[in-house]
Design a protein around this nucleic acid. Structure first.
Lengths: 207, 207
DNA sequence: GGTAAAACCACCCATACGGGTGAGCAAAGC
DNA sequence: GCTTTGCTCACCCGTATGGGTGGTTTTACC
């Protein structure tokens, strides 16, 4: 499982590069930087990002809000607006497209990360491919030995309250195999019961 | 188990009454309204509130922050500051006494409730008597048949990941009795396993 | 005085769960 | 070619869990 891919839509190269650098050093991966709406649409198609960071004011271009509408119609992706405090009027218009979050410039790096995470968590609709990735990144970063993809898949089903038999059925494996995976998970998460697994996953998300 | 008792410290009667009315219609109960620090200290002793809503600027009085310090020293209660956006300077001082939360005037009713709940949840230290009450209020309001106090107590221990045997030991009852209570809980919460109980409690807290 | 709810306990039984051990197979890396 | 890692499966065993049924006692309310 790869990291969460973010598309940055920002016409100010300095800002874009800064964000890009910082995100790459954390749970995220920058799938690309778009400087105008045409760029953005192209990259949405080619790079299949998991979320979009979107500057509301693109000097050289039509409104960033138009791009947001485009994303809403053609993709089901969470998008976060970059905006400045002074820009109250566009903010009102921005609210109408219901972004997953706002980040107000100037922002520090902690704010950026936190806002992204919250936005992705809030965007908990049907096709939120980013959320599991986010959880896995955060969990594994806190483990000596990281969970494999399969193990993480099992963990999620544990989290959802599934029984071993149910897990076995949906994954088309035997209960014995489920148990074997569980043992590995318990070992890595330092847990003894499925409830402890749930607690650990929750704790990981809070950090 | 009674509702969460809130002491309001606010010298503007209109505001105080408004808050009072609104809280009484929800998960909270107003234990009293204090108009100055003397009032406040008196009521803290007599009414044993679970949390305090505290206006920073009491015109007629010494600083509301002093009252906060008093609460910290003599009681272990979460307190939430009422403040206005314009009042940045006192806010800086207010941060130093580490309140459980702020509410910025003007606020709407939803904000008030949400802030109170968050504040009480955050104040999750040693002697937070309010948190369980809050959860129970919220859970029971969503049930056809409410949980008894004992059942809620059991639910909490389930939530903490305790096994039936552990619960039996800490409550000085037999495992058989624990199971009997659990059956009632499962019935009322419409759950089949302890993990479902955890999910239901979590869901209830999000509403 | 009767009724209902709450808290307590017991017994039975089937299934689920967690721990221990061992093992086959394929892909990736050295 | 060998090793490691990940995924798969099997068997055993003891304890935990959930469901069913029935019982006593105390408290509160009508």
């Amino acid at each position: 499982m790869s990291k969460i891919k973010i598309l940055i839509v920002e016409d100010e190269p300095v800002i874009a590069e800064n964000i890009s650098l910082y995100l790459d050093n954390n749970d995220f991966e920058v799938s690309g930087i778009a400087y105008d709406s045409e760029d953005a649409m192209q990259q949405l198609k080619e790079n299949t990002p998991d979320a979009v960071l979107l500057d509301i004011n693109l000097e050289s271009d039509t409104d960033g809000i138009d791009i947001a509408r485009y994303i809403q119609e053609h993709y089901q992706l969470p998008f976060i607006f970059l905006t400045s405090y002074s820009d109250r009027i566009t903010l009102e218009r921005a609210k109408q497209v219901k972004p997953s979050g706002y980040i107000v410039k100037p922002f520090n790096e902690r704010t950026l990360l936190a806002s992204l995470e919250i936005a992705i968590s809030n965007h908990a609709e049907e096709a939120n491919h980013a959320l599991p990735k986010l959880v896995m990144e955060k969990v594994n970063r806190q483990l000596h030995s990281p969970l494999s993809e399969r193990e993480f898949e099992l963990s999620q089903m544990i989290y959802e309250g599934k029984t071993n038999t149910q897990i076995a059925e949906t994954l088309f494996i035997t209960v014995n195999t489920v148990k074997t995976h569980l043992k590995s998970i318990y070992l890595k998460l330092d847990a003894g019961t499925r409830i402890e697994v749930i607690r650990k996953l929750q704790q990981a998300m809070l950090r």
